[in-house]
Amino acid sequence: MLKKSLIVVFWLVIWQLASLLIHNNIMLAGPVNTIVALKRMILTGEYWHSITFSAVRIMGGFFIGSIIGILLAWLSYREKYVEDVLKPFITTLKAIPVASFVIILLIWAGNKILSLYVSALVVVPLLYLNTLSGLKSTDPKLLEMAEVFRMPMRRKLLYIYLPSLYPFWNSSLQAALGMAWKSGVAAEVIGQPLGSVGNGLYQSKIYLETADLFAWTITIILTALILEKLMLAVLGKCIKT
């Protein structure tokens, strides 16, 4: 813990020294200015409204994308032809740049819940591929045992599939959550829905408020981190490993 704190302090000092050296708050705001900006923002209602606005949409998209990815993976696991049919779709979804998604969806659906759609689409292939790998790696001997004892599907899920999926979900959900936030905020910066974190970031850029920009960035990182820890704690509680 002490070692970690010292490393953080070391990089904060480097950041502060760099900003003092450059001596231009537009080019590089230092940690002190950023914390001052963050403190000023925290005291406003708009700040909390923006976080809620973005978190609800991005996390909503993350959950919807996760559920779709998991359900599609289950169908592919049960029926090989579903996997074959979905393969080009998933590969395309993985390859499409986020910016293209954002612009297409902006035309189709407007900017109000753009970040929800974008984060869902980014999450689907990741959860699909990892869930499918997890299901395929389930111990066939345990599945055979379940077949002999005629374990109902609900019990097979709880006792055999979920523990097998846990390591795959643990890593893919972390990655998916990070990607959902990055793409969701990028969508907000492009789509400019009023009262969003992305909109806050964009305003900072317009007015060359680099300290505000950094403060928003720290906000995004911290929010994503807290939600990630929360999600992993819930996952760990629900699945016995």
């Binding site: 001997k141 345990l142 055979e144 045992m145 379940a146 004892f149 374990m151 109902p152 019990r155 709880l158 006792y159 055999i160 523990p163 016995k240 490993t241």
Partner: peptide, 18 residues
């Protein structure tokens, strides 16, 4: 043995039949 390794002996017995 084909047991569910992370589960207890009791859970391994109860899990196969409600």
């Amino acid at each position: 043995n084909r047991l569910l390794e992370q589960f207890s002996a009791v859970e391994n017995v109860t899990c196969v039949d409600s």
